[in-house]
Design a protein around this nucleic acid. Structure first.
Lengths: 201, 201
DNA sequence: TGTACATCAGTGAACGCGCGTTCACTGATGTAC
DNA sequence: TGTACATCAGTGAACGCGCGTTCACTGATGTAC
């Protein structure tokens, strides 16, 4: 390997490190404040760089947000996937529990997801990235129902389950008279209830 | 009745008419553009008044939006309620169909609802107004399941159904490769599927 | 080794914009005498 | 009936702000001779 390529390799690593720093900063911002309050300026400030630097790594704000979402949710989806794959019966109860737990304790990612769903015109390239995630999720949910040997269209079950889980987190939220503990208990309760409906089918 | 009170009554009617005009304008704005694009200025312009006038009728933007939501969704909720009340068996299938139809063709109200759910700190008075609507809906869904004579906690069923319906509209949305007709067909399909799960329970 | 130049990551101020809300003002109408 | 004043709905410009993004510039490092 020529010295030149070693140097350029280091440069590239430096670049990747900086890119990671920006995403990390964005994650922290989203964890701390509501979606609307997160701006390129505040992310740059937290990452300790100039706002202009972000645009060397991401063409625009939307791309940065999608990448942040991907990094933030990657682990929980992987966990769901391995739970399904390794389980004998599909592990429906555990899946709904993981989903509700994760998105209750990381509401920022749920709000980002809702923003992508509701936000209207996303760039086609980004839309495709998000669609890939959604398809992966649905494919794995299919697996649950195949292991459960349900009759009828498996994909309809998956769509219904994904929609229902998403609806639960969207619908039951903080309330002046309820604390987070009560919210999570309620979500779990309704999620278990829904899971039982799927099992009876 | 004294002339004075006749006059003041007319003034009051004029005031109510203007208030209605503002809400009408807001409805039209929401129907035409995405949530973020609707501003006090554009509403005022459409209503043919100065922006400042809006503040004589509504203390702030959020209040105007909530009132617009109430006016826009009042009819469909009433329709759902009367369908449930008048039906022999609760009319579950019809209810999910009405819900999906309405919020597909009036996506603006669905987006407003999601905004209220996800938007964080709403003024307590407004929050209560929205809570009243939600409770009314849940109370009526209870009635469906009572008519269906399901066993177990009726309210859990209602919560699950409301969450699932909301999730369906939130999750399956316009897609570069799908037109509105395909979206509505898919939503109806999944909604019917869900309804069938509730019936088997 | 020393010098002139090129490169390029990085900066922070600035651009251009749109927002919610308010303010000073207008002008029509009502009221008191 | 006429006049002076008060009231008040209504106006549109302005305030103050924050946003995404870009631009002119800096300064450290690499390169050529």
């Amino acid at each position: 390997m020529k010295p030149k390529s070693v140097l350029s390799e280091l440069k590239e690593k430096e670049r990747q490190a900086r890119r990671a720093m920006i995403i990390d900063a964005a994650e922290l911002e989203f964890a701390e404040k509501s979606f609307d309050k997160v701006s390129m300026r505040t992310i740059a400030k937290r990452a300790g760089v100039s706002p202009a630097i972000i645009y060397q790594h991401f063409p625009d704000q939307q791309t940065l947000f999608v990448e942040t979402f991907r990094k933030g949710t990657n682990q929980v989806f992987e966990k769901m996937f391995s739970t399904i794959t390794e389980s004998e019966d599909g592990g429906l109860d555990e899946i709904v529990s993981i989903y509700v737990d994760y998105f209750t304790h990381h509401d920022q990612y749920f709000r980002m997801m809702m923003n992508f769903f509701l936000g209207g015109a996303v760039d086609p390239g980004l839309f495709e990235k998000l669609s890939v995630i959604e398809r992966e999720i649905l494919d794995h949910l299919d697996l649950i129902f195949r292991k459960m040997k349900i009759e009828g269209n498996v994909r309809d079950h998956s769509h219904a389950l994904f929609a229902a889980l998403t609806g639960i987190v969207a619908t039951f939220r903080n309330h002046p008279a309820k604390n987070t503990e009560q919210v999570i208990q309620h979500r779990h309760k309704i999620a278990r209830h829904l899971a039982s409906l799927f099992k009876k089918a």
